[in-house]
Simulated assay, not measured.
Amino acid sequence: MDTRKYAAEAIGTFWLTLGGCGSAVIAAGFPQVGIGFVGVSFAFGLTVLTMAYAIGHVSGCHLNPAVTVGLAAGGRFPAEQILPYVVAQVVGAIVGAGVLYVIASGAPGFDIAKGFAANGYGEHSPGQYSLLSCLFTEIVMTMMFLFIIMGSTHGKAPAGFAPIAIGLGLTLIHLISIPVTNTSVNPARSIGPALFAGPWAIGQLWLFIAAPLIGGALGGFIYRWLSVTPSGDVVGNPAPAVSS
């Protein structure tokens, strides 16, 4: 067991949750100079881009149970490693949300009822989108995220550019879907803030676990079918790839 991989995944997912959700909770609505949806979208993309270069050579920089499952479905990751990777990612996300809570709660007027960057549907969707719209959005966005990951890390793709494509891909996904679900495409990222946001977030959490996992698996399967000779792993090829 190489615990360094799991530690890297926990640290990376911690950074994604703290950086991405932190930008939404702390900086998005700051009076007059708030970064808004665009800023939050770039913040999420930048967390993945920076961690891809930092830990891609250690763990592959999945940072997301849906990515791990999708890579396994696409023949790029061993199935027996899914559970420890997912556990590490969820732990990292919870710690990241906890650190964010400690920081954000120090501001005058802090109100956890504002959502704490948790994902939601219906009345808890930023744009009041229906459950069906949110479910469809999360499946499709995660599917396309895996498609981008699988393609940019393929052995025949230009070397060294995968983190940029993946980070910008996640940015684009957020630009599209923040108004719909607050953008999950990552069960770990959803679990962390939901534990602090309250019963409504925990009650709706099932969608943001199930939909990204379904979308990730679909993206992995589709790209595996499209590309006859898949090779490589996310960003740095540190994890043993499963040959197809």
Rank of each mutant, 00 (worst) to 15 (best):
A194I: 09
A197Y: 00
N186K: 06
G155Q: 13
G167K: 05
W206R: 08
A211H: 11
G216Q: 12
I176M: 14
G151F: 01
G155A: 12
I214W: 12
F161E: 02
P187F: 02
L207D: 07
P187K: 05
A217Q: 13
V185A: 06
F196Q: 06
P187H: 00
A194Q: 03
S190Q: 01
G192S: 08
I202G: 07
I191T: 10
W200Q: 03
L207R: 06
I173A: 15
L172P: 08
T153S: 15
V185M: 12
A159H: 14
A157Y: 09
A201M: 04
F161S: 11
V180M: 11
L175M: 15
A217K: 14
A197E: 02
L207W: 01
L207K: 04
G155I: 09
T183D: 08
V180R: 04
P163A: 02
P163W: 04
G216L: 03
I166L: 02
W200E: 12
A201H: 06
H174D: 04
L168F: 15
G216H: 05
G216S: 10
A159Y: 12
L218C: 15
G160K: 11
G155K: 14
I214F: 14
T183F: 00
L213F: 05
R189L: 15
L213V: 14
I173H: 00
G167C: 02
P187W: 01
A201C: 09
Q204D: 01
K156Q: 15
W206F: 13
A217C: 13
A201D: 07
P179A: 00
G169A: 11
L207V: 14
I202A: 13
G151E: 08
P199V: 07
I191P: 08
W200L: 02
G167N: 08
W200M: 07
T153C: 15
G198K: 08
W206T: 09
L195Q: 09
K156H: 13
P158N: 06
F161R: 07
S152V: 11
L207I: 12
S177L: 10
R189M: 03
F208S: 05
F196T: 10
L172K: 06
A162S: 13
R189K: 15
L175H: 02
L205R: 00
V180T: 13
S177T: 12
P199R: 10
T181M: 02
P179F: 06
I191Y: 04
G169S: 08
T183L: 03
G167M: 00
N182P: 04
G198S: 06
